[in-house]
């Protein structure tokens, strides 16, 4: 699958960020003017515990080259325990996706607190880099097919 990719190809990465920590961390990255690639599209969710595998699949199906889910650090969840449930759900789900051949770097999980603006920018850069190395996603992207098969 080695093909030449455009150097300045920007992947599209859907990021589900919890409102209390990671979204605030992303805001802080802005306030602090930490620059990162314009590849991330942030979807604000109340809690990482709100994110279901379905949502990640939906992003991939709709053509996301990568997905990032980020919540509060374990123990910091605004809703006490949401990220702990999320941690189990995503551990199983990520292993499963890799089992059926989805590249590990496509779907990423992390914890970013409201005070970690720099870390957010760093994660955004890193995830973008990982996804760029993989190239555009194809595996679970739904192609619009003509009516006749």
């Amino acid at each position: 699958m080695e093909e030449k990719r455009e150097e300045n190809w920007q992947p599209k990465i859907v990021a589900f960020l919890c409102n209390w920590c990671s979204y605030a961390g992303a805001d802080l990255a802005g306030v602090s003017r930490y620059q990162y690639p314009p590849s991330i599209r942030i979807v604000r969710v109340p809690c990482s515990g709100r994110v279901s595998p379905n949502m990640i699949l939906d992003a991939l199906r709709s053509g996301a080259d990568g997905v990032l889910v980020s919540g509060c650090h374990p123990g910091d969840c605004h809703y006490i325990s949401g990220n702990f449930y999320a941690r189990r759900r995503f551990a199983l789900f990520k292993r499963f996706l890799e089992f059926i051949g989805i590249e590990p770097d496509r779907v990423n999980f992390t914890w970013i607190s409201a005070s970690e603006g720099e870390q957010f920018a760093q994660v955004a850069r890193e995830v973008t880099e990982r996804v760029k190395r993989l190239g555009p996603a194809r595996k679970l992207v739904k192609e619009i097919e003509p009516c006749s098969r």
Binding site: P74, R87, F90, F109, T110, W111, I112, E116, Q119
Partner: peptide, 12 residues
């Protein structure tokens, strides 16, 4: 619970 799949960057 194990969380070795979490990106290390945000780890604290």
């Amino acid at each position: 619970d194990p969380q070795d799949y979490i990106l290390q960057q945000g780890q604290k």
